[in-house]
Design a protein around this nucleic acid. Structure first.
Lengths: 238, 238
DNA sequence: CGAAAGATTGAGGTGTATCAAGATCAGTGG
DNA sequence: CCACTGATCTTGATACACCTCAATCTTTCG
């Protein structure tokens, strides 16, 4: 299990909390934060809910290991994946200011999260200089990330979307210290399709086609990036 | 000009700053805010830029009258409208934490904005109780709004998108105290198309079709809502 | 008034959805 | 251990919604 982290390493925290946004450098200073609030660790089995939409909002959740998807419900009741979150990223920020969570959060694999009680975070922000700005920056980064995906989804055809998705996954993989050339997709084709706003058959076809062109190789959820440059070109062009 | 506000009314401020999000109730307490920072008023002609992407970020902008569009640039250089903002809404929050603005903002009609210098806002937030939470809530609301549109854009076909767009416009119109049944679209079909991620011809056709069904009547940019319930049904179904 | 921009409508092509059938894998229990 | 079941993934054939290209008409503004 190359993705699981030794729990003993959680004592010392030279960590930064990254926003999901691609190409963003804003991050929370966890070291400063942890001196001012008590975090609760929680373990989750694959498929288990971190929280449900509608549950009372009390805390932000920092992913310590593993990965999650967040999903909303359309008016007619279908599920729609709004984001994938991995180690070092925050879940729940979009629920700030609401009484309850605005989305569902589900573990894609066995994972561990840290609960950051929101009132405590706010109190800490008042004391720790710079934390306020960092929180604002993290929220703004989340907005930019969403905008960035809206841009992609509205501009690009199905295949480039999949290419862009792979590039994003690779980049985040690299940020966590893993290989950007070889990684495992933790989510199903259906989840990817839902996130990219296409059908899962189309995702399959796109992946197959990208493999045919030797940009990548795919075997089920295992992805190898053979030609990163080619992928990037694919993701901007039509 | 039913949308322009008498400038003399700007002295007293029983105002709230609304997030763009549909069905959200978070807002800034402007009265408290204005006691702690100096706002600069700016007037803008239709088509004029409030700011360009890349310009140094110094302030948030509160729309006092008129309306704006914000737009980003895709990798291949095409413009994409990311949001429409009207009276009482904030522009520029997505640029917090960056050195420069992340998007362009253009006036859709003759408008007036108030500049809220960001450092001053942050200082005020430290003094005014509750302001901190309000700012967070406003940012989070922006995220939810984007998510909500992502959901719509990815789920709905062209015509329901246009219906949803009209419903949103009507709701915001109502919030400003104007009629939700009769309003003027301040943006071109091209802008609407760009925002909804469809072609402008498709927007035209959708509007015509909605009019054929007597849900609305359209003449150029003037819209009358004849059957709000029907529109709503249209916007959730396929 | 004339030119340019915006809006509407039509005809035909393309990409993705839809429907359907197999293939592969994970988990379960006999 | 293997058969069995359901979930996930892949691939194919067809249909349809939207895009593309194009013409016409209206409005706006110099």
């Amino acid at each position: 299990m190359s993705t699981s982290i030794d729990p003993s390493s959680t004592r010392s925290l030279p960590w930064t909390v990254w926003p999901t946004a691609p190409s963003s450098d804003a991050c929370l200073d966890l070291e400063a934060l942890q001196q001012h609030l008590a975090v609760t660790r929680r373990k989750h089995k694959a498929g288990q809910h971190l929280f449900h939409a509608g549950q009372p909002f009390r805390a932000l959740h920092l992913i310590h290991s593993g990965s999650f998807k967040t999903s909303g419900l359309t008016d007619d009741g279908r599920e729609r994946v709004t984001a994938f979150k991995m180690r070092g990223e925050l879940i729940g920020v979009d629920s700030i200011g609401l009484g309850s969570y605005a989305c569902d959060a589900v573990a894609l694999e066995d994972s561990e999260s840290w609960e950051l009680p929101y009132p405590a975070v706010m109190k800490a922000a008042a004391h720790v200089t710079g934390l306020q700005e960092q929180i604002h920056a993290a929220l703004a980064a989340e907005i930019r990330c969403d905008r960035s995906w809206m841009l992609l989804l509205s501009t690009l055809a199905a295949e480039p979307r999949v290419a862009a998705f792979l590039i994003d996954m690779a980049a985040r993989q690299a940020r966590m210290g893993y290989s950007a050339k070889h990684f495992i997709l933790r989510m199903s084709r259906l989840d990817i399709a839902s996130f990219l706003a296409i059908k899962h058959e189309t995702v399959s076809r796109a992946l197959s086609h990208l493999a045919d062109r030797h940009f990548i190789s795919v075997q089920r959820r295992e992805v190898r990036v053979l030609d990163a440059e080619g992928l990037r070109e694919m993701a901007v062009a039509a």
